[in-house]
């Protein structure tokens, strides 16, 4: 079977790019192999664990079950693109550090991208809603507790509720 390639033009972390991509490739493959963005992790490759999550036009997807060719014309954001233009760390990344929400770090990029999507909504979610929104990710190290704290605190701080955030 001869390989087929297709030109995929998209924006990755704010930069317009284009490359000929194997039509069978997943978005995970394209980002890791063609653009060497290695924050996208492979934990199952069938959409179960969430370690490969990235934002496509602002919406979080398991990039392992999203074909690379579907990314044509889309805006992709990966963890590498979450920091500011001069590498400034974002609030949610800092919260993961401050709340000791990082252990082995393998699931961390996916979790932060889902958190980024939730936080971008500008809404205040209940504890149960946060848990449900984050439940597409598996983590074996943290028991999710400190990840929950990081997300909730950042949400409250963005809403100007600093005192409530400190009490989480």
């Amino acid at each position: 079977m001869s390989k087929q390639y297709k030109l995929v033009r998209c924006t990755i972390n704010g930069k317009q790019v284009e490359k000929m991509i194997d039509v069978r490739a997943s978005l995970t493959d394209m980002l890791r192999d063609d653009y060497r963005l290695t924050s996208i992790k492979k934990g199952c490759e069938v959409g179960e664990c969430g370690a490969c999550n990235v934002l496509v036009n602002g919406e979080c997807f398991n990039s392992c079950i999203y074909l690379a060719v579907w990314a044509d014309g889309k805006e992709i954001l990966t963890l590498e693109g979450l920091a500011g233009p001069n590498g400034e760390i974002s609030d949610i990344q800092q919260a993961f550090i401050d709340e000791a929400a990082v252990q082995c770090g393998f699931c961390t990029p996916g979790f932060i991208m889902s958190a980024a999507e939730i936080l971008e909504s500008g809404r205040e979610y209940s504890d149960d809603e946060i848990r449900k929104l984050m439940s597409g990710h598996l983590c074996r190290c943290t028991g999710y507790e400190n990840i929950f704290r990081a997300v909730k605190k950042t949400m409250l701080r963005r809403l100007g509720k600093n005192a409530e955030a400190d009490a989480v």
């Binding site: 290695t38 924050s39 760390i89 800092q94 993961f96 990082v102 393998f106 990029p109």
Partner: peptide, 23 residues
């Protein structure tokens, strides 16, 4: 004390085995 590897891990800079393998 803050984890010595936390910054790299939240910035997506940490390299694991697959990230280090030549294509």
């Amino acid at each position: 004390a803050t984890r010595v590897d936390a910054y790299d891990k939240v910035m997506g800079r940490t390299k694991y085995t697959d990230d280090l393998c030549d294509k």
